[in-house]
């Protein structure tokens, strides 16, 4: 039905990211993106690039603007949370966690100021918990009984981590908008880890999660399959960070490549 062939639609990712489509094309491309993961991923990356262009134009806003906006906000109702299954609100999911995890008072952790080139933690308990929990609910359909049983066992393990009194969340995002989220309990020595936005490596290779400790070799915590959460146990309080590498099928005894992403564990109570 579309006036555009598929390849033509793909090529609209960059104009879309720059807001350079006419409204009908914009609508058509957005519809196409829903069924095209590759396009969606490309648009996400290109949009982050476009936003960099925005930063260079920042200028102080007039003081009067602030007064007008604040006055308007006091009398403006917020939109209802969207109900589509595909984008079930992260906020609603987050509230299913104990308050100390998802960031209602009191804020659970000390802030670590950041500027790490490979990986910029946007690390907030709220957003992080939302990220992790989002993926818990993302995996449901088309499961065999065995898979469902395994799922249920893992859910129990996850619930156990979440219920720990010192459970804290952290997450980070790399330059391309891909994320890693962790909810961890230092006293339990356990953590729930999820990746978001990392596509499965080509050629049967896998994402492997490593525990980094001072003066010790990285320890494998297992393979990360898509965005399915991984529960890691017996972490030990000296753990300093988590790292993910791309490894040959089945994983490796020790990392054979540079980490694609790393997340410090200090903000979730490790490394004391």
């Amino acid at each position: 039905m579309s006036l555009f062939r598929r390849e033509d639609l793909h090529s609209l990712a960059a104009p879309y990211a720059l807001d350079a489509l006419e409204p009908p094309e914009r609508v058509r491309f957005e519809r196409h993106m829903k069924d095209c993961d590759r396009c969606a991923a490309e648009v996400r990356a290109l949009s982050e690039d476009a936003v960099r262009l925005a930063w260079s134009t920042a200028a102080p806003a007039p003081a009067a603007l602030r007064d007008r906006v604040m006055a308007a906000v006091r009398t403006t109702a917020q939109d209802p949370v969207p109900q589509e299954a595909a984008r079930e609100p992260a906020r609603a999911r987050a509230t299913q966690l104990p308050p100390h995890v998802w960031g209602a008072q009191p804020p659970p952790r000390q802030r670590v100021r950041r500027r790490i080139p490979l990986f910029v933690p946007f690390a907030t308990a709220t957003a992080a918990a939302a990220l992790v929990v989002a993926s818990l609910f993302a995996v449901q359909a088309n499961r065999t009984q065995d898979e469902l049983n395994a799922e249920r066992d893992r859910s129990r393990e996850i619930a156990h981590v979440l219920a720990a009194p010192d459970a804290r969340a952290s997450s980070g995002r790399d330059g391309r908008g891909r994320t890693i989220g962790v909810i961890a309990s230092a006293t339990e020595g356990s953590a729930v880890v999820t990746l978001g936005g990392y596509s499965t490596p080509p050629g049967g290779r896998v994402h492997q999660l490593w525990l980094m400790r001072p003066g010790a070799q990285p320890r494998s915590l297992g393979l990360l399959k898509d965005d399915t959460p991984l529960v890691a146990t017996s972490l030990g309080s000296s753990a300093t960070s988590l790292a993910v590498t791309v490894e040959p099928a089945g994983g490796s005894p020790q990392p054979t490549t540079q980490p694609i992403v790393q997340l410090a564990l200090k903000s979730v109570g490790f490394g004391e």
Binding site: V81, R87, A90, R173, T179, G197
Partner: peptide, 26 residues
Amino acid sequence: LELWRSATKFDPDRGSALSWILTLAH
């Protein structure tokens, strides 16, 4: 003002808040 109104639609899975906000502004 739209940030206030439609913050409910922000989905952290899809990108950073700053990216969402500046995309909206643009």
